[in-house]
Nucleic acid binder design. Sequence first.
DNA 1: GATATATCCTGTAGGC
DNA 2: TGCCTACAGGATATAT
Length: 306
Amino acid sequence: MPELPEVEVVRAGLAPALAGATVLGVSVLDERALTRHTGDGAHFEAALTGRRITGAARRGKFLWFPLEDPAEDAPTEAIVAHLGMSGQILLRAPGAAPERHERVRLDIQHPDHGELSVVFADQRTFGSLALDPLVPTPDAEPGGIGTTDAAVPAQVSHIARDPLDPAFSDAGFRAALARKDSAIKRVLLDQTVVSGVGNIYADEALWAARIHPETTARLLPTRAVNRLLAEVRRVLEKALAEGGTSFDAQYVNVNGQAGYFAHSLNAYGRTGQPCPRCGRPIVRTSFTNRSSHFCPHCQRVPRHRG
DNA sequence: GATATATCCTGTAGGC
DNA sequence: TGCCTACAGGATATAT
């Protein structure tokens, strides 16, 4: 279940292979992988074939690969990719046997690396690819990590910057929380407030910051918000350094090698096990179709609600 | 307008 | 052994 660190590992792995590569051909095996694309598989194939990719960029959990536009100085379109729950983008030798759950394959030609196959595989089909126009960023800063262009795909424009983005605004984050009447856990998962954080790292950051997941966001003191933001960054950076989490083997990086961060988790998935800080058991609660893991001793139920 | 829930999907784990 | 159910959850459409 890729979150920011896992997606960044994929981006960094793809960038050298994609930058400067030309799309020789596209095979759409399952059109469910194109739910974000306006058009069918044949359109996707025709629109990409012959195009030159300039690089690999990321904001939050969204990836995009800008496409050179011969008529313009900067790219005006990009291939947008989201891995969803179980998506993978794998680099393979040309003609390699189909991957399990393979949905789309791009055959590319790179000036230095020769021919490669870029395989999009996705078990649970929550992920998708699309061709999307690029739109300018409101703050004129680069659209995300891995690009210097002040542009993002249209369908990514509503997604907030992630906490590892140099253009992320801490003050904007504090202001957004001050307006939110929802539980802080929900707000952390709201990609329009802060991107890149999923259920795992939300639980981990809240545990580290000693904040109860049901605390109303706007009631958090500034000091707690700053502590939380620092812990979000620390958790994401640590996971990034370790290559991403992969305790359910769904996530693999571009070479098919699993990341490994599960042993470092303090709260997520540790229901009933001792809190690493105080030794009392970690508790699991459900909200909608999700679950939260926290220590009821270290992360006290907020005194004030609503 | 803000917030909460339902939905898409498939493989795995656990109960019986 | 095998059937059944619960569960995992990102983004978004729909509902409150």
